[in-house]
Simulated assay, not measured.
Amino acid sequence: MSDQAALIGGAADGQGAGGSVLVDPSFLWRRKLKDRIARVVLFLSASLSVFVTAAIVYILITESMSFFEVVSIWDFLTDTQWTPLFTDAHYGILPLLSATLMVSGIALLVAVPAGTVLAVYLSEYAPAKLREAIKPILELLGGVPTVVYGYFALLFVTPLLQKFMPGLNGFNMLAPGLVMGIMILPYVVSVSEDAMRAVPDTLREGAYALGFSRFHTALRVVIPGAFSGITAAYILGMSRAVGETMVVAIAAGQNPNLTLNPSEGAATMTAYIVQVSLGDLPHGSIGYQTIFAVGLTLFVITLLFNIIGFWLRRRYREVY
């Protein structure tokens, strides 16, 4: 308001004989200075995330290069045993990779259908008051500490599943996968519902005018129109599931096991990182460097998921 007042006052006092308006030079200088400061602050804020990401990638690559000088990439990707801390050391990432994808896949089988259905309901069917009541409840699920989810999977979900599956191990991949599906549900629902509500109402009205029911409008108009945001929700949920640590470390076990049976226990990549990080391995040892090799693999997997999501969004936009 002070700048506006100065501008108005300067304009009123500085009118020339010909009616031209004279602006105080000091006001223009202050305005340009504020604009430059704002640009610098915004640029530094935007650059911070890029710098942090670049620093993480640099550390992962440099530390992993020392590891791959001792272990070949072929053995790392093809060996079926992961025993880096044993006397007979093996460095095959496949047991950790299979367990990570298995648990994340189970989580997505829970979160994607349930999240999509719930997002459609909140966007197209739920009254405004009910929607505003349900969304905060879902947001609370995202605020629960992951260690609580881990013990919930170990002490409640696993015994419950054992009543229906007597042969289920105490440490297994099924229980943490189901719990992780509940854990990432708020991410899928919130992002998907926001994307669906962003679809213009004119598209819905056009579908109703053609005789579409509300269900067919949601299925054939709203979901295709919000496909970009829905895909982002799925990718976000998948990345969250792949990077989850405490749930799998507590409920899935820490024994690297190459298996496709979800009723057995296995160690994921994040669980192994926690296991080794809590130990007393000397810095620079081959066992210590496995953390960065596994972390780099996890980073590459997440990057691939994001590339696939970007490709799907681009291809969908070309078609529709």
Score class of each variant (00 low, 15 high):
113 P>V: 03
121 Y>V: 15
26 S>M: 01
146 T>G: 05
302 T>Q: 05
265 G>W: 14
162 Q>W: 08
9 G>Q: 11
314 R>I: 00
1 M>V: 04
22 L>D: 13
233 A>M: 09
243 G>I: 10
184 I>M: 09
11 A>K: 12
73 I>Y: 12
116 T>C: 05
313 R>A: 15
136 P>A: 07
257 N>D: 05
161 L>T: 13
23 V>R: 06
283 H>M: 15
21 V>L: 13
157 V>G: 00
138 L>A: 09
152 F>N: 04
221 V>R: 03
154 L>S: 00
121 Y>F: 06
150 G>I: 00
268 T>Q: 08
294 V>Q: 00
40 V>H: 03
222 V>A: 01
131 R>G: 04
119 A>Q: 11
53 T>W: 12
137 I>T: 01
81 Q>T: 06
166 P>Y: 07
242 V>N: 08
309 G>H: 05
116 T>W: 00
105 G>F: 05
85 L>I: 07
246 M>I: 06
33 L>F: 11
198 A>H: 08
226 A>S: 06
235 I>R: 03
110 V>K: 01
34 K>M: 15
1 M>Y: 12
55 A>M: 13
178 L>C: 04
29 W>F: 05
183 M>R: 02
213 S>E: 03
210 L>K: 13
9 G>L: 12
163 K>T: 10
76 F>V: 09
240 R>T: 05
201 D>Y: 03
188 V>M: 13
33 L>K: 09
180 M>S: 03
214 R>L: 13
239 S>E: 09
27 F>G: 11
239 S>F: 09
212 F>C: 04
185 L>M: 02
214 R>M: 02
